[in-house]
């Protein structure tokens, strides 16, 4: 093979030196790599979003129930059981365990002040009992009841009510939208064929003396942490400084009620409770002590009932006795 001439060797060396220089430059630039610059460039390439601002009010597609003072901020959205958590995240379980069918949400701005807005949530819970349950479980203590239908209350910035199988929330961005919220609520009840003309039969289970009527709540599942216990009404009684929670659940038949009483008793014992004996004067009843609290459990016909976490034995027995007498009626 012919030996390379000097000129060829020099050219070859020059090329190698140039390649080494390029490699060194790449290495140097790469060592000062700033990912934020590239991320920013990439973001620009992917069309940087326009300035983020409040959705503009739109006159189009205003629903018939909308008061004149409000204007839609965009189309309404509907969520089913699969997508409910996309709207309300961890609170979805509460609705899903109570017969949830769908949620429709819409935002409306005040016509005279676009920065004041409210959001309407209409939960279709399938049946009135389910709607009553999610309404009562979330009821705010500071809420003021008002006359709208079966059950309705308002707070400083929101209105909550049930309308047939629907549970409705209206939440505003500022406290100056009280009139708009009430007008919207009245229109919704007025425009919906499932008007609330009958109150749910709830307080009828509980003896009225010292009952906090606003505390009646329907729990749909996992009541008191017991997975077999569902569809239970609870209510609070004031006994001087003490508060006692009473509960009633109407089962399919007497056998089911008796079986549930037995199962719940076992659950209490498994969780640190001990059986004291029958509640004086009440057939088919038992009194338990669970750590520092007292629990009574009884069954009468299809009813499973009792008191929960009373601070004293006397208060538990007193309310259980009243409850039993009411069930006998």
């Amino acid at each position: 093979m012919r030996r390379a001439r000097t000129a060829e060797t020099c050219i070859g060396l020059l090329i190698l030196i140039a390649l080494a220089g390029i490699a060194a430059t790449i290495y140097s630039v790469q060592s000062r790599f700033d990912p934020s610059y590239f991320t920013a460039m990439k973001a620009k390439e992917e069309k940087a979003p326009a300035r983020i601002s409040l959705p503009a009010p739109s006159e189009t597609a205003a629903p018939s129930f909308l008061p004149e003072s409000l204007v839609p901020m965009g189309p309404s959205q509907t969520f089913n059981a699969e997508t409910l958590s996309d709207k309300i995240d961890g609170k979805a379980e509460l609705y899903l365990s109570s017969g949830f069918a769908s949620l429709t949400s819409s935002r409306f701005a005040k016509r005279s002040d676009a920065k004041s807005w409210l959001e309407l949530y209409v939960y279709d819970m399938g049946e009135a009992g389910n709607a009553f349950s999610v309404y009562t479980v979330q009821k705010r203590k500071e809420g003021q009841d008002f006359d709208l239908g079966a059950a309705a209350y308002k707070t400083e910035d929101a209105v909550f009510f049930i309308n047939g199988s629907k549970y409705v929330e209206i939440v505003s961005s500022s406290p100056n939208m009280g009139d708009e919220m009430l007008a919207l609520a009245e229109n919704l009840v007025g425009s919906d064929p499932q008007q609330n003309t009958r109150k749910p039969d709830t307080a009828g289970f509980f003896p009225p003396e010292s009952l906090d009527a606003g505390s009646v709540t329907l729990h749909m599942s996992d009541v008191f942490g017991f997975s077999e216990l569902n569809r239970v009404y609870t209510a609070n009684y004031e006994m001087g400084a003490l508060q006692v929670t009473a509960f009633v659940s109407k089962r399919e038949n007497a056998g089911e009620a008796a079986g549930l009483a037995e199962a719940y008793g076992r659950f209490l014992i498994e969780n640190g409770g001990s059986e004291i004996g029958p509640v004086p004067g009440i057939p088919n009843s038992k009194l338990y002590q669970v750590y520092d609290t007292f629990e009574t459990v009884l069954h009468k016909g299809p009813f499973f009932a009792g008191t929960h976490e009373a601070e004293t034995r006397e208060s538990a027995v007193e309310i259980a006795s009243r409850l039993y007498r009411k069930l006998v009626e």
């Binding site: 309300i88 995240d89 961890g90 609170k91 979330q138 705010r140 203590k141 500071e142 809420g143 707070t155 400083e156 910035d157 929101a158 909550f160 929330e169 939440v171 406290p175």
Partner: peptide, 12 residues
Amino acid sequence: VSNGPTGGSVSD
């Protein structure tokens, strides 16, 4: 203190 994580009123 109640009805989280969404809340729904300043009462929460």
